[in-house]
Design a protein around this nucleic acid. Structure first.
Lengths: 136, 136
DNA sequence: CTTTGCTTATTAGCCGGCTAATGATAGCTT
DNA sequence: AAGCTATCATTAGCCGGCTAATAAGCAAAG
């Protein structure tokens, strides 16, 4: 069997390589790669509970908790009690957290460009559609 | 900007998800996800130095070193001095390391099937070609 | 033969994932 | 009201990546 030619193999290899690129670009705006996705989710809907963030991000609650620790330390978000349920906390963007979006969008455009550099526009579109279909 | 529609975003999400599937399948044959790629490389060429493994796998030397630690502990590989250079070690498959290949190939087929379940044959082929083009 | 510099392996320590286990709270059943 | 159960956040601990720093050995220049 030629593992190297399977989609499972290629996808796994793509993981590592893409994470390295991602890390480079996000660090230029002061964020770690994992933190970015939490921020994107909060920009969509601010004030979510951790459990909801985890569900929306397709990540485990401990992973979200750990990532939030870093974001809290660096003042990108704050925690607040959930009024109706003492078990939960709600996560809110700080001013800094709101403002970093613009820098990230710029970095993201460069990342996207670099990611797709080896593909034609048609291929890029196909890739996006296929990825969406794979893990919707 | 809609991050969710970029290839960079979709790739990051897809690969995380894929790693979880991968882990499930490889653990069924007693290997961790990262160890699999080292084994695949050794099945291609046994007796490589760590530095060459790292280069072929596109991983950092410390990462390879750490993964080999686990493989050594579980008797999938052994270390031997490199005759011509005392700095290097060569990594060799054990009998167990050779034999686990068959089990992994079976598990890998299932993984591949599950990975591509939502795609047609044509789409699967396109995906593989695009990934190969992206990270060759 | 010594010194300087490069290469290899390793260690330490970080982030991003995960599972399993805890503790606190909410809520439902009785 | 009491007790069981489910839910949420958190902690501990693991693997897979990485960079930076260390130690050891090789090799070439002087």
């Amino acid at each position: 069997m030629h593992f190297e030619e399977t989609a499972a193999f290629l996808l796994a290899k793509a993981t590592t390589s893409h994470r390295n690129s991602l890390q480079k670009f996000t660090s230029s705006v002061g964020l770690h790669s994992g933190q970015v996705f939490v921020m994107i989710e909060l920009w969509k809907t601010d004030g979510q509970r951790q459990i909801d963030l985890a569900a929306h991000l397709n990540l485990s609650p401990p992973t979200v908790n750990k990532i939030l620790g870093g974001l809290l330390e660096n003042d990108f978000v704050t925690r607040a009690r959930y009024e109706d349920d003492a078990r939960s906390t709600r996560i809110f963007l700080t001013e800094k957290g709101v403002q970093v979006r613009e820098s990230l969008e710029q970095a993201w455009e460069e990342l996207e460009e670099q990611t797709l550099a080896s593909l034609t526009d048609t291929e890029a579109l196909m890739l996006k559609q296929l990825l969406q279909k794979l893990f919707q």
